[in-house]
């Protein structure tokens, strides 16, 4: 019952509030949308530029698929108050990650969500880097894959959100958001190899788009 209410709130939040606002204010130019579908336990790996990333990625999914998708986000930001924590977890669909290293294994919640069959959106760069500057990929994602070797990763490259709302800025300036979705990557048991193929995929997705970085 409670789950149903959460799902209705989430449909309302994304369908009536977030998506129309993002479409009007920003607008997406997405390629290969057909590659983005929830398929049970699955990872979506995106580059990280802005607080908007999580919501933009969530609103790319069909409304009926939203209950099956969760997005990783920083606990210290999204769960500042108990009310925000409730809203983030149940309505936005956030998996809070403890960046301060309090927990033994900070990515355990991701492993648990995959266990339950969710499609999980992750940001392998970790915290947001300089806007539109790709940070080196971290190995956290490989730890998740070691626990779930048969889970595939779909890379998503986004450009424009770091211009619209970069870190440390409160003023949103509308820019069109370019999104490119790649083919799924399979885990073969080699950490460095996976990071390399993920980085290569990001580079390829970026080269397919007409990206205009700041001069």
């Amino acid at each position: 019952m409670e789950q149903k209410i959460h799902n209705i709130l989430r449909w309302f939040f994304y369908g009536v509030v977030v998506r129309p606002i993002l479409l009007l204010i920003l607008g997406f130019n997405a390629r290969h949308m057909e590659r983005l579908k929830p398929r049970g336990a699955h990872l979506i790996a995106a580059n990280h530029n802005s607080h908007l990333d999580a919501m933009v990625l969530m609103s790319l999914f069909k409304l009926c698929d939203l209950p099956k998708v969760k997005v990783v986000a920083a606990k210290d930001y999204f769960c500042r108050t108990p009310l925000m924590a409730w809203f983030s977890i149940n309505v936005i669909g956030v998996i809070p990650i403890d960046r301060q290293g309090g927990a033994d294994n900070p990515i355990q919640p991701v492993i648990d969500a995959l266990e339950e069959g969710y499609t999980v959106i992750i940001f392998p760069e970790g915290s947001r880097g300089d806007p539109e500057q790709q940070a080196p990929l971290k190995y956290g994602v490989t730890k998740v894959l070691e626990a779930h070797p048969d889970v595939q990763i779909t890379p998503v490259y986004m450009h424009g959100l770091g211009k619209a709302l970069p870190r440390g800025e409160a003023l949103l300036v509308p820019f069109v958001c370019e999104i490119n979705i790649g083919e799924p990557i399979t885990w073969h048991g080699d950490r460095a190899k996976l990071i390399d193929s993920l980085a290569a995929s990001f580079a390829h997705l970026k080269s397919e788009m007409e990206v205009k970085p700041w001069q």
Binding site: V173, V176, W214
Partner: peptide, 16 residues
């Protein structure tokens, strides 16, 4: 205008 500024080269300082 949004499409225009999204395709032309601009500087970070121009954002605001």
């Amino acid at each position: 205008f949004k499409e225009y500024i999204s395709v032309i080269p601009l500087r970070k300082a121009d954002r605001r």
